[in-house]
Simulated assay, not measured.
Amino acid sequence: MTIDSEPIPDTLRWAVRLLRAEAVALGLVAVWLLWSDLTATTSDLTTALLVTAFAIAGAAALWALGGALARRKSGARAPAIVLQLMLLPIGWYMIQGGLGWLGLPLMALGLGVTGLLVSPPTNRALGFE
């Protein structure tokens, strides 16, 4: 159920902005991966292309979920939350690997966007209350 009579709350607007920003960032990573796939000498091109395809699919999914949430499609919230929670183990392993400067912000981003997506104003805008 969607409710379009009220303006989009700031919590949902910021969640959409952050999802779209993540999509752009992951898209840039995918472009870099594609460039690396085409220019690097590799022993396993198939695996390299699959990782690149995964990054492209992730960017497309984040962008699409942001658009669906902007249109107040309540079914987009759960997949968006799952993608945000996936940032927690990614950030944890980055911290373990010595990239805490990147891992901690990723974990904070995932928790922050999840918080925006489950906040009461977002719930009302998506028809959950």
Rank of each mutant, 00 (worst) to 15 (best):
D4P: 00
S5P: 00
P7W: 05
I8W: 00
D10R: 15
T11S: 15
R17C: 04
R17N: 10
R17W: 09
L19F: 10
L19D: 08
R20V: 07
A21W: 11
A21D: 10
E22W: 06
L26G: 01
L28V: 07
L28W: 10
A30H: 00
A30N: 00
W32A: 13
W32Q: 02
L33C: 01
L33G: 01
W35M: 04
S36F: 01
L38I: 12
L38K: 04
T39R: 11
T41F: 09
T42A: 12
T42R: 13
S43G: 13
T46K: 12
T47G: 05
A48S: 14
A48L: 07
L49N: 02
V51F: 06
V51I: 09
A53C: 05
F54N: 03
F54A: 14
I56A: 15
A57M: 04
G58C: 06
A59H: 01
A59P: 02
A60W: 10
A60Y: 05
L62A: 13
L62M: 12
L62F: 10
L62G: 05
L62E: 09
W63Q: 07
W63T: 00
A64V: 10
A64N: 10
G67T: 05
A68I: 01
A68S: 11
A70V: 00
R71L: 14
R72L: 00
R72I: 01
K73F: 04
S74C: 04
G75W: 11
R77I: 10
A78Y: 04
I81K: 08
V82S: 08
V82F: 12
L83P: 06
L83V: 09
L87V: 06
L87N: 14
I90C: 07
I90S: 08
W92V: 15
W92E: 07
Y93D: 05
Y93E: 09
Q96R: 15
W101I: 15
W101A: 15
L102V: 14
G103D: 07
G103K: 10
L104K: 14
L106S: 13
M107P: 09
A108M: 14
L109H: 14
L109R: 13
L109T: 12
G110P: 10
L111V: 12
L111S: 06
V113L: 14
G115V: 07
L116T: 09
L117I: 08
P120I: 02
P120F: 00
P120N: 06
T122E: 05
T122D: 07
